[in-house]
Design a protein around this nucleic acid. Structure first.
Lengths: 101, 101
DNA sequence: TGAATAGTTCGATGATATTCGAACAATAGG
DNA sequence: CCTATTGTTCGAATATCATCGAACTATTCA
């Protein structure tokens, strides 16, 4: 692959971040990455096609929330916890399930 | 007026909150309310029709971010700073302009 | 070389949201 | 009572976004 992949993006401005987080699938991906630390795209068991999934990962990459490194035929995704916590302290904890009653 | 207005809603779960905040007009409304403390719907000078504006205020009301009280022919909107800060401490500061370079 | 695996990209489709104008409701003031 | 003001509601048009399948790229392994 090695196709630029728009990796290494910095955390985007709030407006774009909220816009990106306003999708249940992307929030699920984030939750999964919070648990697994790292995971290839296909490892989330969400009921969506792989092209859809790829799209969501791209969006998360573009706001700087995840970085991706190729490993064999897989793309290992990694939540940028440090950067997110620096810019938006607390945010990940709000997202993390479960959200109390 | 006095038409129920779905006021007094508690702060919604994160998923719905992010979804609601993923719109530039609504973020602007929030910023304006952060400055003015209180304001009638028409007082935001945004380049959108009043029916559109009414819709956005409704969305913000439904996630419990603003409360509205009728005063004469006007609806005075008030950001629920306390509740928001309790549930999402820091959030309002991220939204408040300007976001540093 | 060839087949299998993992993602990406593209184009099209469908669903959801934003937007607007018009009609309506409620209050204030003459 | 009549009119102006302010916002809500409704319906329709539009734009945006998520989703899918198919074609493609890249890598691994036989």
């Amino acid at each position: 692959m090695k196709k630029a992949l728009s990796n290494d993006k910095p955390i985007a401005p709030v407006d774009r971040v909220f816009s990106a987080l306003g999708d249940p699938v992307r929030l699920e991906i984030i939750r999964i990455l919070m648990e697994k630390k790292e995971a290839p795209c296909g490892d989330c068991g969400l009921p969506v096609g792989k092209s859809t999934l790829s799209h969501h990962y791209k969006v998360l990459r573009e706001i700087g929330f995840i970085k991706t490194r190729g490993e064999g035929t897989r793309q290992i995704n990694c939540l940028q916890i440090e950067e997110i916590n620096r810019r938006f302290p607390g945010l990940l904890e709000w997202i993390g399930r479960p959200q109390g009653p």
